[in-house]
Each structure stands twice: as C-alpha cells, then as structure tokens.
C-alpha cells in the first residue's frame, strides 16, 4: 500500500505550480492515494526484461532544417496577453 502524506501533496502542488487550499489537500491526499494504490496493480507484472515504450511508432529523432520563415508577428503574439507593455509581456516584479 502506497501511503501519501499531506506534506507530500503540498510538495507536489508546489512542483506543479498549483495554489492549493487546506480542503483540497485533504481531498487530494485521499484521491491520489486511491489512484496510486490502484496503480500498484502493475507490480504484479515482472517487467525487468521489458523495454519501455515511449512511442508506438519507431521514429528516431526527426529533424528539419532550422530556417527562418514567416510566422506570428510581435504584435499578434502580444494580442492575447493578460498584460503587456512596450512590445513585451509584463509580469509581476521578481526583484524587490
């Protein structure tokens, strides 16, 4: 049985960049434990000599030439931004 603590849930939420309320910590701790316990089913299988599948097609690295081409203009790129100034995305200050 995998056990997940509330502290772990808070840690994962921080890694995932999600603000999380106490009520959500309670609920998620239980729900994640349920799902992870269900996933323990996989340990019935011996997979020591099995290669992992990252991709179903046998593709190797696919490259194309790195050539400049017409794409989105700076103005267009900014038009859906929540905040912008002087042709740039504006975010809250990082430094004091």
């Amino acid at each position: 049985m995998a056990d997940i603590s509330k502290e772990q849930v808070k840690h994962v939420a921080n890694l995932a960049r999600l603000a999380i309320t106490d009520e959500e910590v309670e609920r998620m701790t239980k729900q994640l434990a349920d799902i992870i316990n269900y996933a323990e089913l996989l340990n019935e299988l011996d997979t020591d000599n099995v290669k992992p599948t990252t991709h179903v097609l046998d593709l190797k690295n696919v490259m194309r030439k790195d050539e400049p081409r017409e794409w989105i203009s700076k103005e267009d790129a900014l038009k859906n931004a929540p905040d912008q100034k002087d042709g740039q995305f504006r975010v809250p200050s990082i430094l004091e």
Binding site: R17, A81, P82, P92, S93, I94
Partner: peptide, 19 residues
C-alpha cells in the same frame, strides 16, 4: 497567465501569480 489566457486578479508576486 503570462502570454495568453487568464491571469489571477490577485496582486501577488511572480511565483504566486503562476500558482
């Protein structure tokens, strides 16, 4: 919440803005 989509109305620092 930086390039497109909805950003929180709360006035917070950068990291909390993401979260």
């Amino acid at each position: 919440g930086v390039r497109y989509g909805v950003r929180t109305e709360k006035r917070v620092d950068m990291l909390d803005m993401f979260k």
